[in-house]
Design a protein around this nucleic acid. Structure first.
Lengths: 257, 257
DNA sequence: CCTTGAACCTCACGTCGGGGGAGGTCGTAG
DNA sequence: CTACGACCTCCCCCGACGTGAGGTTCAAGG
């Protein structure tokens, strides 16, 4: 047999690390958490690993390489006997987690891509504007649930770019009208103010979904405007503080109406 | 104006957390690392945040939401003035990182998918076999670089399934022949042993790429066999210790030849 | 004015998978 | 005998907070 009797072979920690393509520190860690404890120790306390330890280490490395946390690696290596399906289930579960992860990354890539296109747009490469866009995104995510944002996006797509543009123009007219009333001292309970609110809310209604879901998004939108008119107003062609005043005025008129 | 003068408004830490959809603890953390320090404190030490703080928080949350680490968020918020391109560059960099990440995830999904198909294969659903496959994968990754594994996969694809099957059958014959020599006591420097080694290496040569790259993968394969014949042998129809003996015998004959 | 409960404060440890270093011991080769 | 490499244990470090413990302050009701 020319001395190839592997059954009695022993590895030092450094040899084992090289044999499995890992580090001494990692093996110390596996020892600490009980995942791979050296079968023997020399009189001086040096770890001696056996062939069985090496095989276990290969399994640990392979499972880790699939992205499983060490705790689950330990569970697999401990529990294959009492449940032969556990490995399969754990792999399936890991596949699911990876899918989730991949989807989150996809969303982030999409968003960053959109932002970069906006940054590269020659008509609006202003970094301040980009920052304000970031703020508005954050505000939206705070006030609307993911589901609500999805519904709002659906409605916007249904209106189409020209529908959105029309609404934007009409809305600009309403803002100008409101600012004139505000500057002119028209009281909030004046019929003209109440009529303005009615047209304002009707216009906003185009963007909200139908039924009770629409009432919820509308309420969330009003909360958003009330708390953050300065931030949202930063993206608009009117001074933020005048917009804040207008929002308060409209709320008053809405209560009065 | 009905009291909507936001410029003087102050938020407590809890109000700010709710306004931005985050937690009090996160705000404490941002304070600790200097990313978002409350502009004021009450006499009792309670944090008071201003409108400017709120806007900064929105930016922090938005950038964090894109996956940027807090250190880079701080850099963006500090450096937009002296380098308006920095935000764009950082976003591009982040996009690159996400792409890398997505690719790693794709590789893992592929591997786990392969393993699950093997697990569901009615001809080999043995969990022990699956574990051994895992070991072999790990051994391969330890001894061959990613590039080398790619070259080996190319050669295998070039041989095609039937070419691989042919080689497997021929190899089985060589193994049986070697085991007979070993059992019969044929010395390693016997011409029959040297001829066996020659045919063995020629057969293995079909799987290695051409030129010096092939010599390297062949050397790595011999190292792998020498160190790990027990692990690889576990997947084969011969006893692992007899395979280990055979590998040692062939090495001796190779040196003799 | 007193009490109560919510909100706030600081301090500090835990997470996950190790990296890196300090300070000391062990083994072997020249 | 001495040098050097490999090994030992103990300990702090990373990121972005979560989760208490133990104490103070605020706002409202009686």
């Amino acid at each position: 047999m020319s001395g190839a009797d592997d059954a009695g072979r022993r590895w030092s920690i450094g040899e084992l690390a090289r044999a499995a393509g890992t580090t001494v520190r990692a093996l110390h860690h596996y020892d600490e958490i009980g995942l791979l404890v050296a079968s023997e120790r020399t009189a001086a306390g040096h770890r001696r690993y056996t062939t069985r330890d090496l095989r276990r280490l290969y399994r640990v490395r392979a499972l880790r390489g699939l992205g499983l946390p060490l705790e689950e690696v330990a569970a697999v290596l401990a529990g294959t006997a009492d449940d032969p399906e556990s490995l399969r289930d754990l792999l399936a579960e890991q596949l699911r987690r990876l899918d989730e992860h991949a989807e989150r990354i996809g969303v982030l890539r999409q968003r960053i891509g959109d932002l970069l296109r906006q940054a590269d747009d020659p008509y609006g490469p202003d970094p301040d504007r980009l920052m304000t866009t970031l703020e508005v995104v954050s505000v939206f995510e705070t006030y609307f649930t993911e589901e609500q944002r999805g519904r709002l996006a659906e409605r916007r797509d249904a209106l189409g770019p020209e529908g959105v543009e029309d609404a934007r123009r009409e809305w600009a007219g309403l803002v100008e009208e409101g600012l004139r009333h505000l500057a002119g001292g028209t009281p909030a309970d004046d019929p003209r103010a109440r009529d303005l609110v009615r047209r304002w809310d009707a216009l906003a209604g185009r963007f909200h979904p139908e039924g009770p879901a629409g009432a919820e998004t509308a309420a969330a939108a009003r909360r958003m405007w009330r708390d953050n008119s300065a931030e949202i107003g930063g993206t608009l062609p009117w001074p933020a503080e005048r917009m804040a005043g207008l929002v308060a005025y409209l709320e008053e008129a809405r209560r009065a109406g």
